[in-house]
Nucleic acid binder design. Structure first.
Lengths: 146, 146
DNA sequence: CTTAAAATACGAAGAGCTTCGTACTAAATG
DNA sequence: CATTTAGTACGAAGCTCTTCGTATTTTAAG
């Protein structure tokens, strides 16, 4: 019997299962905070949420959403203390890629180059960033000179 | 009295008003069809919607959404005939840019270069497209050699 | 004229997300 | 021990989006 891990690695469904999840807007904002600050309590997240925005969000609102995220396995939770400590269970890059896939399909019907042109055309990018992107393109062209 | 047009052009609120609208998923799918096929009836849109997807969507569902889009001024409508003909009232590029702005902020906290790197790294891009992007970067670097 | 077919209008149900009030529980303070 | 304080759990309301059923109207066919 090949086993669960073997099966999952083979067809990548393990990654799919976890990283194909699409967090909602509120969930994403909480993830941003946890990605940046590391494991945090509900109160810490709630405060960070409130001082970075104009509108103020109630404590129990943040609590509820984080509880839901825990049930969805977006977060893990240490409840050995009375005050629970939550941590992101998904990686920033993976979630971003999953969201990007969906967005690219929905808004650009999958045309990555069109999106790229809009992106570079509309948004301020520093010379350093442009150079970085250029370097990546060069590398891609080398690897696939077909 | 400067007049409405003058006012709107001055502070760009005319464009904002219209292009800052964020169509929903279903609305976007309908817009895609209208952008591609031009003015169409509800039935045409509904059929196109159904043969390009697995799930089938009821006629009145499509009708309802298009009526709502008409109220939101996302679509215009010619009702001189019994069978109304709808057309997109917003430009594809403008909507895409508006969606991109929001997505960039939500998922990448505004870092266009990070998104670009993900985009080029994760998605198949043809050599032609890469060349096109490269050309744009060169142009940007020329215009801002600071 | 009657009937059938096709279109629009409209109301309402269902689902998911966000928000918060309230109840309950545990800890700290006096 | 009583009281205040801070935390979790939970239910439900409000919102938006999607979906469809039904009623109504208009056109075409018999």
């Amino acid at each position: 019997m090949p086993g669960f891990l073997y099966y999952c690695v083979r067809n990548t469904s393990y990654i799919m299962m976890k990283e194909n999840i699409q967090p909602t807007q509120a969930e994403l904002e909480i993830l941003q905070i946890l990605w940046k600050k590391g494991p945090s309590t509900v109160r810490e997240v709630n405060e960070r949420l409130n001082d970075s925005q104009e509108k103020s969000i109630g404590y129990t609102t943040t609590l509820k959403i984080m509880q839901i995220m825990f049930e969805k396995n977006l977060l893990s939770r240490n409840d050995s203390q009375r005050t629970h400590v939550y941590a992101a269970e998904v990686r920033e890059g993976n979630i971003q890629s999953a969201l990007l896939d969906r967005f690219l399909q929905a808004a650009y019907k999958g045309s990555a180059s069109k999106l790229a042109l809009h992106l570079l055309g509309n948004h301020k990018t520093t010379p350093d960033e442009l150079a970085e992107i250029k370097a990546l393109i060069d590398q891609l062209e080398k690897n696939k000179p077909s």
